[in-house]
Design a binder for these strands. Structure first.
Length: 584
RNA sequence: GCGCCCGUAGCUCAGUUGGAUAGAGCACGAGCCUUCUAAGCUUGGGGUCGCAGGUUCGAAUCCUGCCGGGCGCGCCA
């Protein structure tokens, strides 16, 4: 039951009947007609812009058209009042019984409430994290991880067919550096004194275990060999070990992806050659020389002919090189092969979650997807801005060089995965995010994690008390839904139901815009409304949820509380956050 | 120099895809609150939505140009 959708249909039906009666031109475009919650609740329950949007085409003044439509709508059973306001909005007030039915429907639908079919099973591939497997994940990685995971969950709830994917960047020079660093630790594990880790190698302690594991498995067999001999095997070993580490870190966040694609495997299987063939056949590859970037010519710039992809045909600023001078593929070439691979596996919408340092890469990748899929698939890139980690408002130093960078693991150990996940979703992905380790543990209204969780815990607590004090009232959602919901008459109670009924709308809008943060704000609003009701009960005993001498009223209120807990749990669910039963 | 992103109350941010008088929390002022789980509630002040044009019934939202900040800019990934 989705009031906005239901009444959009009602409004359209009203318009049609006006047309039939000859009071409205035929063939009007209703696409822009919207039914929304009004900005100011005093205006009513729902508002439609129909008269404003159609006035011009219909050749009727907005307010006149509005009045006519309002009159039409007044005939509807569930509509208590329909009034024209402002420039031509129609404000609708629905009968309380409609909202009572809504609450019943919410309870009967249970966790499925809010599910949508706007996705129409379109296959979406959400690629996130995709870090170089060269070290443990950091807080920065975590943001992309959580954002990607939440968007995937929202899209799934909105009816898309979702694949969660990780692209392993295991083909470049960075994994060679990793192998070299692991080799040093391997020699160390076999008793060699290696001293300071030379610059150009990864100094992290976490590689000691990798060196030891390799020594334990292979003994001294690689010790006196040339680099070209040990490199492939040590590299493979190190990448596997580091990917295990990365997967562990992700599991710590509650993230398990469906597909892991190896760049190296893709290249070795000839994926890039296939792409090149396709593109050559379409005349999109040529050899040319690029101009240096204006205003900032690199020191060592020298013009040289390169193999280029005609990205400018698809909206990019310059054509992009796909081959390095040593003959190997650029990262971009591999990425093209990878995206073609995703397309061949069925993806029609690809969503890539990237860090801000990759923003310069967006246009060429979109161009590539357009070219490779002949516009049958679309790429969306979500850029995640920086996470500013602080403690008591003071920046936490994160310098890789000084070895003081904070790993995701440490932060999870300190505040818990649910706090990390929720906080990462409280901002638009393209805005930077403040993460204060002390603030997020505060129990106050300006800590949204606490405030939302507390609403759920408080609701569960009341239900537990009710189970003791009112054992006759069944708390099964269906029983509560069948209860005397007409007893819910307080304005705060009805306002809360209206808010709960917005959940399907929130899911759809978050899915369409790829904006999980909307759900965080929505949950905060629910929490505020619910805490508000609870507090009212402190002042007026009559408004307390549990009313000893009125089990009927109590049953109705338990339905509302159950519904609230259910929607909060649903919202936290798509965030991958476990709702808590009690605060301790 | 070019491209992308951002600019809303003292601070941190929302703003329902172009709607009505631009909202919330914190902070500040005033007054309440001792419990179904306490970590709060009510209320007041506070705005040139970076600036200037444009589009239209209507702009924080769309377009153009400036100003300020972040990121990126041929064989790094």
């Amino acid at each position: 039951m989705n009031p906005y959708k239901d009444f959009k249909a009602v409004v359209k039906a009203g318009l049609e009947s006006m047309t039939k009666a000859g009071n409205l031109a035929e063939g009007l475009d209703l696409a822009r007609v919207a039914v929304e919650p009004p900005r100011d609740p005093a205006h009513g329950d729902l508002a439609t812009n129909a008269a404003l949007v159609l006035a011009k085409a219909a050749g009727i003044k907005p307010r006149d058209l509005g009045e006519a439509l309002a009159e039409e709508l007044r005939g509807h059973d569930e509509i208590e009042a329909a009034e024209v306001a402002g420039p031509g909005f129609i404000n609708l007030r629905l009968r309380d019984s409609y909202w009572h039915n809504c609450l019943g429907a919410i309870l009967r639908a249970g966790p499925a409430y809010g599910d949508s079919d706007i996705g129409q099973d379109v296959e979406v591939n959400v690629e996130y994290v995709s870090a170089n497997p060269t070290g443990p994940l950091t807080v920065g990685h975590a943001r992309g991880a959580v954002v990607g995971d939440a968007v995937a969950a929202i899209l799934a709830k909105a009816g898309y067919s979702v694949t969660r994917e990780f692209y392993i960047n295991d083909a470049g020079s960075q994994v060679d550096t990793l192998a070299g660093s692991a080799y040093l630790r391997y020699r160390e594990a076999l008793g060699e004194e290696i001293g300071e880790i030379p610059s150009g190698f990864y100094p992290g302690e976490y590689l000691k275990a990798v060196g030891q594991a390799l020594a334990a498995r292979d003994g001294s067999k690689w010790l006196d060999r040339a680099e070209e001999d040990w490199m492939p095997e040590v590299r493979r070993f190190a990448i596997d070990a580091l990917m295990d580490l990365v997967r562990e870190d992700l599991a710590g966040l509650g993230i398990v992806q469906d597909v892991f694609t190896s760049e190296r495997a893709l290249v070795e299987a000839g994926g890039v050659d296939a792409v090149l063939e396709t593109l050559v056949a379409r005349g999109l590859i040529y050899t040319g020389t690029l101009e240096p970037p204006k205003g900032k010519t690199p020191e060592d710039w020298e013009p040289r002919p390169q193999t280029l992809f005609r990205a400018t045909n698809f909206g990019d600023d310059v054509d992009r090189p796909i081959r390095k001078s040593d003959g190997t593929w650029t990262y971009f070439a591999g990425d093209m092969a990878y995206h073609l691979d995703k397309f061949r596996r069925g993806a029609r919408i690809m969503i890539n979650v990237w860090g801000a340092d990759h923003s310069g890469y967006v246009k060429r990748m979109k161009a590539a997807v357009e070219a490779l899929t002949e516009r049958q698939a679309r790429l969306e890139v979500m850029i995640c801005q920086l996470v500013k980690l602080t403690r008591h408002g003071e920046p936490v130093k994160m310098s890789k060089r000084a070895g003081t960078f904070v790993t995701l693991r440490e932060v999870i150990d300190e505040v818990g995965k649910d706090v990390v996940r929720f906080i990462m979703l409280t901002r638009k992905n393209d805005a930077s995010l403040d993460f204060d380790l002390t603030k997020v543990m505060e129990q106050s209204r300006d800590n949204p994690v606490f405030y939302v969780q507390y609403a759920h815990a408080r609701a569960r607590s009341v239900l537990r008390h009710a189970a003791e004090g009112f054992p006759a009232i069944s708390q099964a959602p269906d029983s509560l839904a069948d209860g005397p919901l007409h007893r819910l008459t307080d304005s705060g109670e009805l306002a809360l139901i209206r808010l709960l009924a917005q959940w399907p709308r929130l899911v759809e809008s978050a899915a369409e815009t790829y904006e999980p943060h909307r759900i965080a704000f929505y949950l905060y609003d629910i929490a505020a409304a619910f805490h508000g009701l609870w507090t009212k009960g402190k002042d007026e005993a009559r408004l307390r949820f549990l009313v000893e001498d009125d089990p009927e009223l109590t049953a109705a209120r338990l339905a509302l509380i159950q519904g609230t807990a259910q929607i909060v749990a649903s919202g936290l669910g798509v965030f991958g956050v476990q709702p808590v039963e009690e605060m301790r």
